[in-house]
Write a protein that binds this DNA or RNA. Sequence first.
DNA 1: GATATTAAAGACTCTCGTTATCTATAATAT
DNA 2: ATATTATAGATAACGAGAGTCTTTAATATC
Lengths: 138, 138
Amino acid sequence: MKYSNATNYALHTMVYLIHLPQGNTVGVQELAKIQKLSPTYLSKILTKLTKAGLIESTPGVKGGYKISRFQNEVTFYDVIKAIEGDTNLFDCSIHHEGCLIEETMRQAEENMKKELQAKLLIDIVKKAEAERSVETNQ
Amino acid sequence: MKYSNATNYALHTMVYLIHLPQGNTVGVQELAKIQKLSPTYLSKILTKLTKAGLIESTPGVKGGYKISRFQNEVTFYDVIKAIEGDTNLFDCSIHHEGCLIEETMRQAEENMKKELQAKLLIDIVKKAEAERSVETNQ
DNA sequence: GATATTAAAGACTCTCGTTATCTATAATAT
DNA sequence: ATATTATAGATAACGAGAGTCTTTAATATC
Ligand code: SF4
Ligand code: SF4
């Protein structure tokens, strides 16, 4: 479970797309401007999200990106996996039989993974909205 | 909590040093040969372990490295920290107030860290010895 | 069907951290 | 004094990540 900047951009974009009114699409030009990235670079990241089925893309006039139908089930880990692939932080290529170092490291990494598989993107979006509404009522 | 090959070499060395008879020392030449590394490269790793107080070094004839007095308390995380420093996998430099992405990622990483702070090196050494003795008795 | 718009794909460069080597210096036992 | 061993610094080789440019494919609108 590596973790690079690209994943962070992906998370930001996902959160942004979840906020979009149902059915609306937004192009890579605008998304790139928001995050101050070059459109072509962000485009590669978005393509990975598309291939993973997390977002949908339509080329052409009035095209762009929108969140896929399954937005309520998307976890943090889904996004990370879409960008980084299914890798391990600990990567010993030798694999001695019954190696306890490897077992320990994998176990620890698994704990992190479990946590990220349990966290839905929609949860933090709702939580942020709730906090904003409290502020407004004060 | 980064994790590079150097940390893996450090873990191997620590385990090896724990196995040494009390009071014995071993030089970097031999340690490097075992792991098939260049001595100078491994030397830098060992120096970090020394500065972290996990092992002790004595230069000169009959010198070398040995495990420090506190071997029974050394955790996996201690070794990782000695080599990689105290870093975070998730490293957004912006830190927007109350950012839930950052909070979620940090929380997950913390889970991994906790696990590695709970695992003692001595535990896997003993476990490996126990398994070997079972095999021998069969 | 022609045109404008937008995503996808490929080749390529730049940068940076890790890995690794070489050399010189400091410390210690004999 | 001498041999041995760790430490430190400079620096080169390498690969992964970050980022750009250009070309191609798909789609709506007219
Ligand atoms: S002991 Fe474990 S971590 Fe070390 S080389 Fe063997 S498999 Fe890899
Ligand atoms: S929203 Fe969170 S992760 Fe994104 S830039 Fe701000 S602080 Fe960083």
